[in-house]
Structures are given as C-alpha cells and as structure tokens.
C-alpha cells in the first residue's frame, strides 16, 4: 500500500458525492422576489437608513408565541386589517410640504372617515360585497370602525386604548369577541397604527397627480402603483396582500389626507376564507379634531350576545369577511 497522507484517493469520491453544477444566480428574479430589498438597492442606503425601515417579523413572532394564541391572532388580524386597509392618519408621500403634513397629522386628535369597502372574488368577479364603513380615530381613546351592509350594522370593532381591550361585535350573529391585551401586545398594536403603516408607504415610489378639486376642496394627489412595502406587515397566511395600488389626496388647506383610494388583491388566506379576492376601498375625511366621546369606544356587550368561540375562528376566518359572505348566503356559518 502506498503512503497517502493527503487521502487524495478520496477526492474523486467526494467530488462524485458532493459536486453540483455551478449554481447560477438570477439577480433580476431575486429582485422580483425581494421587492423591499430591491427598493433599498435602487434608492441607495442613505435614504433608507434615514427612514429606519421597521421589521415587522418580531412583532408577529411575539403574537404567535403569545399564550393568548388563537384569540390574540384573530384580534390582531382584525386590527391589522383595519390598520393596513387604508386608514388615514399617515403622512403625505413626499409632495406638498411633507414636513408640514407630518406635523399636522401628529397634531390631530381625532379623525372621522367615511367610505366603503368593495370586495369581489377573483373566481367570480360578479360576486361583489359592498360595505359602508365609518372609521373613528381618537388619540386618547383608540379606534372604532363600523361596517354596514344595506344599512344593517354587520360589524363593529373597537380598540380601546385606556382599557387596553379589543371588542368585536357581529350583530347579525349576536356574536362578540372581547380580549384584554397585555402590555406587550398593546405595544405591538401601537406599532400597527395607521401612522406607522403609512410610514411604510413612504418608502414606496409615488407619482404626483398634481392639483385637483376633491369634494370641493383643493388637493394634491399622489398615486402609488406599488405598495409592496406593506405586503409583509402581516403574515401571508393571515392577510396575503399580493398587489396593491392607491391614491392619496392631500388637502392643500388642511394639509391632511382628505381622500384615500386603494385597490388590493388579496390571496387565499384566513382573512378571505381561502379565496382570492379583490378589495377596493375609498375613505373620505369627514371631520377632524371634533369631539368623539369616550362612550363611542365603549366595550359594553349588548344583551343576548354570545362569545365568538375558538371553534368559530377556523370556520369563520376573519369575522369581517365572513359576515360579508354570510349576508350573501355563501357562508356555512351564517346558517
């Protein structure tokens, strides 16, 4: 036997065992798969570092590891959906005196927006569900949103900041879901405020639409063709925002967003009860800095309501959408 201190006899064996054809890297494909990183590369890092992009994954990791488990997830989902889907207290993206708009938004104590959400399924585009929505935001008391179909109150969700509790009412079923939040969860929810969500929007490219009259008010418009920065704000299995575009009209006098329009395509996920859906939403600023009583954000449960059970969660998916489905007679849980 010849001496072989290098064990070179293994080389051909190891090569056969391990060798792979050189992996080619598809950079354009990678950019498409990683839009946030692509944006960072295209804009340069200095600008991005100034904006301090927020990593939302730890937020959701906290939620998912919480002892409150599925109820918390359901509540978080509702809140996140409320926050993501075009709430107003953000900033105008880089147009009319951005700093002034930001400052004005920071000073606003209350806002009331009125609008509508129109859901349609991708599979059956003619199947349309329309909800009239009123959004009430109060810095001291929290957030309350009501949705009505054909004038009937179908949901009310309240996020009560002082009491650190969340309440979802589903009048058609007389179901309710009331949840206390731990301090940690409150912090998580606060990070999901519209302002923070809109901060993410600031990282996206926008196109100036120029001046226009919106509902009789002078405004400047900004169009987002791609709102991918908010795609990852919630896990895809909860809210799978696949595509989105939107327009924000900033009142030149108010220096506040006065009309927000958005189109989102949402893939199969819990929120859509495993259906591909499109959502068109319009929200118009009705008033701001008006008095909103604390009772508006109350957590009283009307008589006759029963608790939204854990077993309702998988069958109902996100309650909001399930209500919509049920009113059209397509949800089994509406029976």
């Amino acid at each position: 036997m010849t001496h072989d201190p290098d064990n070179s006899w293994l080389d051909s064996l190891l090569s056969r065992q391990i060798h792979r054809a050189p992996a080619e890297f598809d950079f354009p494909g990678w950019l498409r798969e990683h839009p946030n990183e692509a944006r960072r590369l295209q804009r340069g890092f200095e600008a991005v570092e100034r904006n301090k992009e927020k990593d939302t994954h730890p937020i959701w990791r906290c939620i998912m590891t919480s002892k409150m488990t599925k109820y918390s997830v359901a509540a978080a989902l509702v809140l996140a959906a409320a926050a993501v889907l075009l709430n107003p207290l953000g900033t105008s993206p880089g147009g009319v005196a951005l700093a002034a708009v930001q400052e004005k938004v920071a000073q606003v104590s209350t806002m009331v927006l009125r609008g509508e959400k129109v859901f349609s399924t991708v599979a059956e585009p003619n199947l349309v569900f329309r909800i009239d929505v009123v959004k009430n935001f109060s810095r001291p008391y929290g957030y309350m949103e009501e949705g009505r179909m054909k004038g009937t109150l179908t949901y009310r969700m309240t996020w009560n900041l002082p009491q650190k509790q969340f309440l979802l009412l589903l009048p058609p079923w007389k179901k309710c879901l009331k949840l206390p939040f731990t301090e940690e969860q409150m912090q998580i929810m606060e990070r999901l405020t519209p302002t923070r969500v809109m901060d993410l929007l600031l990282e996206t490219e926008s196109r100036k639409l120029g001046p226009a009259q919106i509902d009789g008010r002078a405004a400047e418009g900004f169009e987002f063709q791609d709102i991918q920065s908010i795609q990852n704000i919630v896990p895809k299995y909860l809210v799978d925002i696949q595509q989105g575009s939107g327009t924000v009209w900033v009142g030149t006098k108010e220096l506040l967003p006065i009309r927000i329009e958005g189109d989102l395509r949402i893939g199969k996920c819990m929120m859509t009860v495993s259906a591909d859906m499109r959502l068109h939403e319009v929200a118009v600023l009705e008033s701001h800095d008006v008095e909103l009583p604390d009772s508006m954000f109350g957590l009283e449960i009307p008589e006759g309501y029963t608790e939204f059970q854990l077993s309702d969660v998988p069958s109902a998916g996100l309650a909001l959408v399930d209500v919509i489905m049920s009113l059209s007679g397509t949800s089994p849980s509406a029976k």
Binding site: A23, F25, F27, W30, G44, F45, E46
Partner: peptide, 19 residues
C-alpha cells in the same frame, strides 16, 4: 457602489458568492 444605489454592483456580489 451598492451603497450608492448601484443595484447592479450588489448583483455582481450576489453572483460572485451565491455558489
């Protein structure tokens, strides 16, 4: 260069180190 918004420079780094 990548830090100065030259995306292709980062692409070059990716291609170099990916294998």
């Amino acid at each position: 260069q990548a830090l100065q918004a030259d995306a292709e420079s980062f692409g070059q780094l990716c291609r170099r180190y990916y294998p």
